[in-house]
């Protein structure tokens, strides 16, 4: 496969990589950039474990080709805790017990992040819709929704 130079912003820093533009974003993140916080669960855009932000919108990185992110901005779970300080969502997932096996957690937090970037104080229905593309097989949805609510109110109060 012919490689190309692809430049984009990753977790707020510019990166330059060399790969075939047809490679999946999830593979480049995990295999080439060693950012394994982004998980793969199905490879078909069904489970949401591989969710990342692309220009602020939640996308399944298994359905995005690396060529599509050129000159754009990608944020993964590793980029959320800027300078080691946890995002309010990450703190809330920990304190509310919203983490069980943890495999859905990064994608779940990223989907919730996209929501909170758009809406300061989302309703429960809006939270459910925002994470509708993220499966949790341990079935911890109630605590996950609570965690997103906690993070939203912490931000409003803080």
């Amino acid at each position: 496969m012919e490689r190309e130079r692809i430049c984009f912003t990753l977790n707020n820093s510019p990166v330059e990589i060399h790969c075939h533009p047809g490679e999946r974003l999830v593979d480049v993140l995990r295999e080439q950039l060693d950012l394994t916080g982004t998980k793969e669960g199905c490879g078909q855009g069904e489970c949401g474990a591989c969710t990342v932000l692309l220009d602020g919108r939640a996308v399944n990185s298994c359905l995005v080709l690396i060529g599509q992110v050129a000159e754009r901005s990608v944020l993964t779970i590793e980029g959320l805790a800027a300078g080691g300080k946890l995002d309010p969502l990450q703190t809330a997932f920990v304190t509310e017990g919203a983490v069980q096996c943890g495999y859905c957690t990064p994608g779940m937090i990223i989907s919730a992040k996209a929501l909170l970037m758009e809406k300061q104080n989302p309703t429960e229905a809006e939270i459910k819709e925002a994470i509708a593309g993220n499966l949790c097989r341990c079935t911890g949805y109630i605590k996950i929704i609570k965690a997103v609510q906690t993070a939203a109110s912490a931000r409003l109060e803080g």
Binding site: L35, T36, G37, T38, K39, E40, T76, I77, E78, L80, A81, L86, Q90, F93, V94, T95, G97, V99, G102, Y103, T105, P106, I109
Partner: peptide, 17 residues
């Protein structure tokens, strides 16, 4: 707080894959 929750929420946890 679950001992491994923070690493799972930051993506630091390593699963075998």
């Amino acid at each position: 707080v679950k001992v491994d929750a923070k690493d799972k929420a930051t993506g630091a946890t390593k699963y075998p894959g």
